[in-house]
Simulated scan of single mutants.
Amino acid sequence: MRAGEWVRLVDGKGRRHNLCLEPGKRFFSNRGHVEHDEMIGREEGFTVMASSGGEYLVFRPLLSEFVVSMPRGAAVVYPKDAAQIVAMADIFPGADVVEAGVGSGALTCSLLRAVGPFGRVHSFERREEFAEIARRNVDQFFGAPDGESHPAWTLTLGDLAEALPATGERCDRIILDMLAPWECLDAAADALRPGGIVCAYVATTTQLSRFVETVRVHGGFTEPQAWESLVRDWHVEGLAVRPGHKMIGHTAFLVTARRMAPGQKAPVKKRRPAPGAYGPDYTGPRAEAGETAETGEDAPR
């Protein structure tokens, strides 16, 4: 372990502390202090004793551990959702990925790891304060020297709906983590290569419905797929095997759809909407397309 690296100290009760190793400095807690010099130069996975007898386990933080404890501007994308995005949006080594809504940089770290040294991640963020926090977090995790960022990462301050078309770039995947991802769908469609995937991360059912219906009305994508993931740990001690008392429940909904080739449209969904699916107060994209509130079918012209 080298000076300038971040490490995680965990005590016997599971309390965690992240710190950057600096020669001559001390880490203080209610268990006493630990000299940084005692950790520098050693292989991770050891225990260190504090001056008052407290014992700490020392490892470099995993990405899943780092993102839930990083400084935040916006809420972070939890590891369970980041893993789903990387897998289900098929983020592959060498991919060109566009991210809208960098937040605190949690998902950006997962995307950069997935695309590898020959890929590219271009992040767009509207708010300058969020962009600055994300830059510091990403640089901290990847250990970038001062003034430099990950070589595969570009961070642009601006609205993707306006800034992405101005670049003229093409990409393989687009991840939308924002309040109104449907506003960026046209820009995403123009930038995605045929077969590319758009993935939206939304928190509420109203956002989910609006985005899915907008994708359907656009016509240039396959039928969108929507889901959420729930994670529950288990307590295992001898014959006492039971579900944990805590779980990570709803954090967000994920939606993916694939880009069709220019001029091509996916087969029309055959399943008839459930009665009342588009009620009289429905104002979403299907209503704008001229469908009846009662049946969801095209209104007479």
Rank of each mutant, 00 (worst) to 15 (best):
L111E: 04
R173T: 05
G24R: 00
L19S: 05
T214A: 01
V138R: 01
V7W: 00
S64D: 14
H33K: 02
L160C: 11
I85G: 15
G32W: 01
L63Y: 08
H250Y: 08
G263W: 06
D146V: 09
G249E: 01
S69K: 13
K270M: 10
R135K: 15
D90F: 11
L9S: 01
E22F: 09
N30A: 09
P224A: 00
A87H: 13
S209A: 10
L63T: 09
F118S: 05
P285A: 07
K13H: 14
G219T: 00
G158H: 09
E183D: 06
A75H: 12
V68Q: 13
A188H: 05
H218T: 05
A257P: 11
V7G: 00
S149K: 00
D233L: 11
A100T: 03
Q225I: 10
M260F: 11
V67W: 02
D81Y: 08
E65Q: 11
V217H: 04
Y78H: 15
V212E: 03
V217L: 03
G279I: 07
D146T: 11
G73I: 04
Q84H: 15
S209Q: 09
L185D: 00
E237Q: 13
G276V: 07
A266R: 02
H33T: 08
A95D: 13
E55D: 07
F124E: 07
V34G: 01
